[in-house]
Amino acid sequence: MFSNQERIDRIIGILIDSFFPILKAGIQFTIPLTIITFVLGLILALLIALARLSSVKVLIVLAKFYVWIFRGTPLLVQIFILFYGLPSFGITLDPFPAAVIAFTLNKGAYSSEIIRAAILSIPKGQWEAAFSIGMTKSQAMRRIIIPQSIRVTLPPLGNSFISLVKDTSLAATITVTELFQKGQQIASVTYEPLWIYIEVAFIYLIFSTVLSYFQEKLELRYDKGIAK
């Protein structure tokens, strides 16, 4: 009995000691990595979506090719090519920027499909109404179509944002000391992988729950002007 009590105390001690270092790694790396790559990925995605919807053949082909490559290969492989592969071309990236670039390129491809589908879901009558008051194609896109598309993109983009929070754990493989990597380090010195990884999971859960909450808020805000 006594030794059992001792073990429980030890585990509780380790969990308490490791909680803030792991949380800190999450706030220092996981969150910034998620937010930066999501925003950059979104900008990239919008450009790719607009290229695909344009009437310029070259742009359409390039955009399709891009999406084909990044959706058809594993994210982990993309990260490795960037971080371990590029140095043989004389391009050496630090782990964090390498992770940002890899995730952005990957997210850009996925999100562009979400944005494209949302734009295509706006009824033709909206374009025609915009044209009928003399708008050009780009004015109609900017003022009428995209604002309505945003609402449509929010649920799928929200989901992809939350999966990005979790996907950033792949950055551990290129030595970014984000949340998961920190957990790994602590697990290997304390020899308590079960409890540490449960703690890691718990902290991811906190992050994604908070983000889901904001996602819901945002969706509600954009629901104005739309009949239920």
């Binding site: 009558g125 109404a129 915009a130 009928s132 604002p147 309505q148 002007g225 739309i226 009949a227």
Partner: peptide
Amino acid sequence: GMVFQGYNLFPH
């Protein structure tokens, strides 16, 4: 100016 059968107002 065009007035449409289905109105086509901008819902947002």
